[in-house]
């Protein structure tokens, strides 16, 4: 069973190849992170999957519904939290949610009960009657998540959900995403924050120049390199050396006299190893 299926997805903008044959299969209930630097094609993929952008070729389906041929059914399957805040700032929190409910053909009674439950869920109950423009950035993000969940989607697309938020708020959003996963919702997440993908994702796809260069669990992507890394200054910049154990790394360091930093291997290392460039 596949919740999100993408086959040979290609998107060209005039002469620019944004996606060059992407294949993705996301299982029900998993958090799938799509990691890559700015301009790698992350947002383009989400925009195609959510019907905002037309693919040049390839097929995509959400919960078995083809997004081009069964548009309405496919759109009922997912909720979208885009990168930019796209709430009606002049309307209240409640009004934003009611409009969303109507767009998804929900009954008024269901809208009311879901609004009550979801605002409680994202801890915004006391802001129900407040105009959106009075909310903080973190509250707006949480409201966007609540809005995306209002019609009970099977899949939640989160495009850079914590971009521009301070670390405290970011962790609050992470906790919320984990909480959503426990309800069985499949989550497709794009990010360029390494720690976000490491903390949240069951599987990670590395995207570089419109191509998936690796796809696996975070642990397996990192374990090829080892568990520990030493960053040290060399003549032409910084060099990173990887080790299976901390003991090996410390022993290596005793043989060298340069300045160094000892740390755990992370997804950035795996990305760097595969593409020769950093994620950020």
């Amino acid at each position: 069973m596949t919740m999100i299926q993408v086959n040979n997805l290609i998107k060209n903008y005039k002469k620019v190849e944004a996606l060059a044959g992407v294949d993705i299969h996301v299982k029900p209930g998993e958090i799938f992170a799509y990691l890559g630097p700015n301009g790698a094609g992350k947002t383009t993929t989400i925009r195609i999957l959510t019907g905002l952008t037309q693919a040049t070729s390839g097929t995509c389906s959400i919960n078995g519904f083809n997004i081009e041929k069964q548009v309405c059914q496919a759109k009922q399957q997912y909720g979208l939290v885009p990168q930019a805040i796209n709430l009606d700032q002049e309307l209240t929190v409640q009004e934003n949610l009611i409009i969303h409910g109507w767009l998804y053909r929900m009954k008024s009674a269901d809208i009311s009960s879901r609004i009550h439950a979801l605002l409680d869920y994202v801890e915004l109950s006391e802001k129900k009657k407040s105009q959106v423009k009075t909310l903080s950035g973190g509250m707006k993000r949480r409201l966007m998540v609540a809005r995306a969940l209002l019609h009970g989607p099977k899949v939640l697309f989160l495009d850079e959900p914590t971009v521009g938020l301070d670390p405290g708020i970011r962790r609050k959003i992470w906790a919320l995403i984990k909480k959503i996963q426990t309800t069985g919702t499949t989550i497709f997440l794009t990010t360029h924050y390494i720690e976000e993908a490491e903390f949240l994702a069951d599987r990670v796809a590395f995207l570089d120049q419109g191509r998936i260069v690796a796809l696996d669990t975070p642990d397996r992507l990192m374990e090829n390199l080892g568990a520990w890394a030493i960053d040290r200054l060399v003549e032409d910049g910084m060099e990173t050396v990887y080790f299976k154990t901390r003991h090996e790394a410390e022993r290596f360091n005793t043989l060298k006299s340069e300045q160094f930093t000892l740390r755990r291997v992370n997804l950035e290392d795996a990305f760097l190893d595969l593409t020769g460039k950093k994620v950020k």
């Binding site: 905002l52 009922q76 979208l80 930019a84 796209n86 709430l87 009606d88 767009l103 998804y104």
Partner: peptide, 13 residues
């Protein structure tokens, strides 16, 4: 400016 049109585009209307 508000990018709300995307919300309509993504919805099943």
């Amino acid at each position: 400016y508000w990018h709300i049109f995307e919300e309509f585009q993504a919805s099943p209307i």
